[in-house]
Design a protein around this nucleic acid. Structure first.
Length: 813
DNA sequence: ATCATAACGCTTTTT
DNA sequence: GCGTTATGAT
C-alpha cells in the first residue's frame, strides 16, 4: 500500500472511531463536535442541544485533539497501528491503545476558553463539563467575557501602568462617580442625565474611543453638548484611573487594548489558547467580537455558537451583524445549522416559528421536532393585572394538585416591575416562589457599606467606596471635613486616604486630624488582619472593629440588615471553600461580577419567576407568559423603529421556546402602570400565532385588538355575577358560605378593594382539605381587615394562607 | 446627626 | 405606586 493510500485509510478509520464516541448526538451535532479546526459558525436554534454540543466539543478536543479534523498521520505509524484501529472498529470498543492512536495533540484543558454571556450560563457549562470530563474540567476557562478579562488583566495589566489589584466598579458605582463629576462640572442633571451620559461613554468605549479620542471627535463635531459629554468622560476616566478602578466596559476595553498594543502580552495569551468558543454569539458587541478574535489569533480555531433569532441585547451594544457577517470576516468558515428541537412539543414550536417569521433580516431557520403535537397554547384575558396573577397562581395550584412539582412551572414577564402583583397573589395562595434577578442582594445599602470596607481595605485608593464609609458609622468626620479633604486630595492628585494620613500637616484639617488619623489607622489595622487571618475570621473582625453592626441598633429593620450581613458571610465561607487560593481580592472579583448568587437555590422546589431576558437558556415543562399586551410586550419604547420591534419579537420567540409541554399566555384588561390604571390592547405577537395552535375561550381567530368582554374571566351576566371556569364555560356557583344570613356568592378577588365578607368560617382546631396540600388542621386564625390569615398544619408542613384567597382551593371537612 | 417629608424618576433587559 | 434620594427641621 502506498503511503497516501495508507494515510487516507488511517484518517478515515480514525475519524470513524472518534465519531463513534459521540453516537448519542444527531448528525449535525456530531459534525459540529468533530469540526475542531478553523472558524466554525454554529447556528443553533432554541432547544437544539447547543450546550450539549459545546460540552462534547470540548471533550473531543481534550481526548482527541484535532484527530477528527486533520489529514495528518504520524510518520511513525504503520500497518501495525492501522490494524489496531481496524480491530477497534470491528469490536466496537475503543481500546486505550486505539484511543491513543486517534489522538492528535490532545489539548490541555487550560488551553480551551469557552466564553459565555451570563454567569448562569457559565455555571451551567462548568457543571456539565466537570460531569462529562471529570478531572481537569475545572482548568477549562469556562466563564463570562467579564471574568475572563479580569483574569487576563490581573495577570498582565501592569504593563499598562495600572495596578493588577484594580477595583471593579459596578453600574451603581459608575453612576455615583458620574453624578459627582457632573455636579463638579456644573452640568445640570436635567439636561445631562447621568445614566444617559454613561450610555454615551459606553457606546464610545464599544468603538474603542478613549476619552482623548472622544474629545477630539467632539471638537471636530462642534456640537457643544458632545463637548460637554467629552469633558465628563475625561473627568470620569481620570477618577477611575486615580482610584485604580475599572468599570464593566473597561474590563473588555482594556483587555482589547492590552492585547492590541502589547505584542508580547498578545503572544503570551495567543500561545495559551488553542481553542476559543463563544456561546450566545448573537449577544456579543463589536468590542467583544474583537476580543474573541484577538484571543483566537494564534490558531484561528474559533467556534461561535449563536442564534440570530435569539439576539435580545441589541440595546446594550450587541450587534446582530456579528453573527450575520461572521462568514465574511473569516473566509473558510464552516457553517452548521442545528434545527432539530428536543425541548418543545409541536404546537409550541409552530407558534414560535410563526411569530419569528415576521422578522426580516434573519438567517432563516425553522425548528422541527419529532415529539408529537402536544397541547395547544392557551390564551386568557383577565379582568385586571391582579386577576391575571390570581389566575396564574390558581392554575399552578391545580397543577400541583394533580401531581406536578412547583418547579415544573415558570412565570415569565417583560419587566421586573410585573413581579409585584404575582408575588402578592402567590403569597396569598401559598404558592412557594422565587424571584430570579430583580433587586439585587449586592445593591442593598448595608451590603454596599460592608463591601465598601472590604474594597477600601483591599485597595486604599478606592475613593468612591472610602467616601461611603469614612463617616459610617458616624465618627465625627462631617461633610465639611470631607469636602476639604477631597480638595486636598484632588489638588495633590493623590488618594483621599493618603491625604488623610497627613491630616496634621494641613491647618484646615487640624480639628479633625485626630479623627482622620484614627480612621486611617483602622483601615491599616484591617489591612494587616486581611493578610494574616482566614477570610471569614477577618470579616468578623472587620464587623467588630468598624463598629458597623453595632451602629445599626436593634430595630426590626436593623435585624434584617444584620441578617443580610450574615448572608454575606456565608458567601465568603462558600467562596473560601471553593477557591483554591482564597483571597480578599478574589472574593471582591466574585461579587463584582456575580449579580445573582442565588442560582444554587434554583434546586429548591418553588416556582421561578423572572424576566424573559433572564429566562434565556432555561426550559420548563409549563410556562406562563404574563402581560401579553401592547405597550408592555412589545414595550412602548419599541414602537418607534422596526429594528426595536424586531428585537421585541425575538424576545417573544425566546419566551415561547422556553416551554416544553404547556404554554399559557395571559393579558389583563386593566393594568396598573406607574400608578395609573391603563387599558392595553392585546399584544400583536398573539395575533401572529396561527389560530390552529392557540386555544381561546370562544372565538378562535381574528379577534379584535380591543379588550373584548368575551375573553374576560369574570363578568356580569343578567345582572348576576358568576365565576367563569378557566377552561371556557361557566361553572355552577360555589356553595354559599356558612354565614347566618345569605350573602353574595364568593368571587375570586379581582379588584383592589376586596369584598368584606368571609368565604369560610374557620377557627383553630377545624380540619380543612386543600387542593394542593391535602388535609390539615387549622392552627391559628388572625383577622386582618375583611380577610384573615390562617395557619394550617398540613402533612407537607405548616402553611400560612390568606383566607379569602385560599378558600377557592379549600373546603372544611 | 437623625428623622421626617418632599421630590423624583422609574419600567426594558445584564455584566 | 414604590423606592430611593434630596432637603430641611429638630
Amino acid at each position: 500500500m502506498v503511503r497516501t493510500e495508507f494515510e487516507e485509510r488511517f484518517v478515515s478509520l480514525r475519524r470513524g472511531l472518534i465519531a463513534r464516541e459521540f453516537q448519542e448526538l444527531n448528525d449535525k451535532q456530531r459534525e459540529a463536535v468533530l469540526a475542531t479546526e478553523g472558524p466554525l459558525l454554529l447556528l443553533a436554534g432554541a432547544g437544539s442541544g447547543k450546550t450539549t454540543v459545546l460540552i462534547n466539543r470540548v471533550a473531543n478536543l481534550i481526548r482527541f485533539g484535532r484527530g477528527s479534523d486533520t489529514a495528518e498521520v504520524d510518520p511513525k505509524y504503520g500497518e501495525r497501528e492501522l490494524r489496531v484501529l481496524e480491530e477497534s472498529e470491528k469490536s466496537g470498543v475503543l481500546s486505550p491503545e486505539a484511543e491513543a492512536l486517534c489522538a492528535v495533540d490532545p489539548v490541555e484543558p487550560w488551553r480551551v476558553i469557552a466564553i459565555t454571556f451570563t454567569n448562569k450560563a457559565a455555571d451551567e457549562l462548568k457543571a456539565r463539563l466537570s460531569k462529562r470530563i471529570g478531572t481537569g474540567a475545572e482548568d477549562i476557562w469556562a466563564m463570562t467575557f467579564h471574568s475572563a478579562c479580569v483574569r487576563i488583566l490581573r495577570r498582565s495589566i501592569d504593563v499598562m501602568g495600572i495596578s493588577p489589584s484594580f477595583t471593579i466598579y459596578d453600574t451603581a458605582d459608575s453612576l455615583a462617580v458620574m453624578k459627582r463629576v457632573l455636579r463638579e462640572l456644573n452640568m445640570d442633571e436635567k439636561i445631562f442625565p447621568p445614566k444617559q451620559v454613561l450610555g454615551y461613554i459606553s457606546r464610545a468605549k464599544d468603538e474603542m474611543l478613549f476619552a482623548p479620542d472622544y474629545t477630539a471627535e467632539a471638537e471636530k463635531s462642534r456640537d457643544p453638548r458632545k463637548k460637554l459629554i467629552a469633558r465628563a468622560y475625561t473627568e470620569y476616566s481620570r477618577r477611575l484611573l486615580s482610584s485604580d478602578a475599572l468599570d464593566f466596559d473597561d474590563l473588555i476595553l482594556f483587555t482589547v487594548k492590552l492585547l492590541t498594543d502589547y505584542p508580547e502580552v498578545r503572544e503570551r495569551w495567543q500561545r495559551q489558547f488553542k481553542y476559543v468558543l463563544v456561546d450566545e454569539y448573537q449577544d456579543t458587541s463589536v468590542l467583544q467580537y474583537r476580543l474573541a478574535s484577538l484571543l483566537a489569533g494564534g490558531t484561528e480555531n474559533i467556534c461561535v455558537v449563536g442564534d440570530d433569532d435569539q439576539s435580545i441585547y441589541r440595546f446594550r451594544g450587541a450587534t446582530i451583524e456579528n453573527i450575520l457577517s461572521f462568514e465574511k470576516r473569516y473566509r473558510d468558515t464552516r457553517v452548521i445549522k442545528l434545527e432539530q428541537n428536543y425541548r418543545s412539543t409541536g404546537h409550541i414550536l409552530e407558534a414560535a416559528n410563526a411569530v419569528i417569521k415576521n422578522n426580516l433580516g434573519r438567517k432563516g431557520k425553522s425548528l422541527w421536532t419529532s415529539a408529537g403535537e402536544g397541547d395547544r397554547l392557551t390564551f386568557r384575558m383577565a379582568e385586571s393585572d391582579e386577576a391575571e396573577a390570581a389566575f396564574v397562581a390558581n392554575e399552578i395550584v391545580s397543577g400541583v394538585a394533580s401531581g406536578m412539582r412547583w418547579s415544573d412551572f415558570a412565570v415569565l414577564y417583560r419587566v421586573n416591575a410585573q413581579s409585584n402583583r404575582l408575588e402578592y397573589a402567590f403569597k396569598r395562595a401559598a404558592v412557594p416562589y422565587k424571584v430570579i434577578g430583580g433587586t439585587r442582594f449586592f445593591d442593598r445599602a448595608e451590603i454596599k457599606d460592608v463591601t465598601s470596607y472590604l474594597c477600601v481595605v483591599h485597595n486604599p485608593a478606592d475613593d468612591l467606596r472610602l467616601l461611603r464609609i469614612i463617616n459610617n458609622p458616624p465618627r465625627g468626620i462631617g461633610p465639611t471635613t470631607v469636602e476639604r479633604l477631597r480638595d486636598i486630595a484632588a489638588r495633590e492628585r493623590r488618594p483621599i486616604l493618603d491625604a488623610a494620613a497627613d491630616a496634621a500637616k494641613y491647618p484646615e484639617l487640624k480639628s479633625a486630624a485626630g479623627k482622620l488619623m484614627k480612621f486611617m489607622e483602622l483601615i491599616m489595622e484591617l489591612r494587616g488582619l486581611a493578610d494574616s487571618l482566614p477570610l471569614d475570621e477577618f470579616y468578623e473582625e472587620l464587623l467588630e472593629k468598624t463598629g458597623y453592626v453595632e451602629s445599626l441598633g436593634d430595630s426590626d429593620d436593623a435585624l434584617a440588615r444584620v441578617d443580610n450581613i450574615r448572608e454575606l458571610k456565608s458567601n465568603i465561607v462558600s467562596y473560601a471553600s471553593s477557591a483554591e487560593r482564597p483571597t480578599l481580592g478574589g472574593f471582591l472579583d466574585e461579587i463584582a461580577l456575580y449579580t445573582d448568587l442565588d442560582s444554587p437555590e434554583m434546586n429548591e422546589d418553588s416556582v421561578p419567576m423572572m424576566t424573559i431576558h433572564s429566562a434565556k437558556g432555561l426550559e420548563f415543562p409549563w410556562v406562563f407568559i404574563v402581560g401579553m399586551e401592547e405597550n408592555l410586550f412589545p414595550s412602548a419604547r419599541s414602537m418607534n423603529t422596526e429594528e426595536d420591534m424586531e428585537e421585541e419579537r425575538r424576545l417573544c420567540y425566546v419566551a415561547l421556546t422556553r416551554a416544553q409541554r404547556r404554554l399559557v399566555l395571559t393579558a389583563a384588561k386593566r393594568r396598573l402602570m406607574f400608578g395609573h390604571t391603563t387599558a392595553n390592547t392585546v399584544s400583536r405577537f398573539l395575533e401572529e400565532i396561527p389560530a390552529e395552535h392557540l386555544d381561546m375561550p370562544a372565538k378562535r381567530a381574528g379577534f379584535t385588538r380591543e379588550p373584548d368582554p368575551e375573553y374576560l374571566d369574570w363578568e356580569y351576566r343578567e345582572g348576576r355575577r358568576q365565576e367563569r371556569d378557566y377552561t371556557g364555560g361557566f361553572v355552577s356557583q360555589r356553595r354559599a358560605p356558612r354565614t347566618p344570613r345569605p350573602s353574595p356568592p364568593q368571587t375570586i378577588r379581582t379588584t383592589a378593594h376586596p369584598p368584606a365578607q368571609k368565604t369560610l368560617e374557620l377557627k383553630p382546631g377545624d380540619r380543612v382539605r386543600h387542593r394542593a396540600f391535602g388535609e390539615g388542621d387549622v392552627v391559628a386564625v388572625t383577622p386582618t381587615g375583611g380577610d384573615a390569615m390562617i395557619t394550617v398544619r398540613f402533612a407537607v408542613g405548616e402553611k400560612r394562607l390568606m383566607l379569602n384567597a385560599a378558600a377557592q382551593f379549600m373546603v372544611k371537612v
